[in-house]
């Protein structure tokens, strides 16, 4: 993990520990999503996929992708990875599928990659 990313995670984690209950449920979910994004490895690989996704689906650039990803979240997501796993499973059930370099991906995983790309840009 890059030093900048490490410091960001550290800062957010401290904030989370020191100020429990201060943030709204929405903010806490957003915080959890940010920490998930920052924890991802092999970011370059994900970023390239996200870049390709955004080029194929340019309308996604206009969206608040984090808000979209958290749109149907419970008030307090206990485990972001599990939440996203459920969400991408739901994507496949409801045909929320994006084709990137002919790979059939869930919208959720493609959007995560897009967010990684946007954060690196």
């Amino acid at each position: 993990m890059k030093r900048r990313n490490f410091l960001s995670v550290l800062f957010l984690s401290l904030l989370h520990i020191l100020l429990p209950g201060c943030a709204s449920p929405r903010a806490r979910n957003l915080d959890a999503l940010n920490r998930f994004l920052l924890s991802l490895d092999k970011r370059k690989q994900l970023s390239l996929l996200g870049e390709k996704y955004l080029s194929l689906y340019p309308e996604e650039r206009e969206r608040n992708l984090k808000a979209v990803l958290l749109s149907e979240a419970p008030t307090n997501i206990p485990n972001m990875t599990s939440y996203l796993q459920d969400r991408l499973a739901q994507d496949f059930r409801t045909r929320e599928i994006a084709q990137v370099s002919r790979w059939e991906l869930s919208r959720t995983e493609a959007r995560i990659c897009a967010l990684v790309h946007l954060s690196e840009a």
Partner: peptide, 16 residues
């Protein structure tokens, strides 16, 4: 191939 590796990376990132 590079794209397959990227898809694999997503799957790993999601713990799948």
């Amino acid at each position: 191939d590079p794209w397959a590796k990227r898809v694999q990376t997503i799957a790993t990132s999601f713990g799948l």
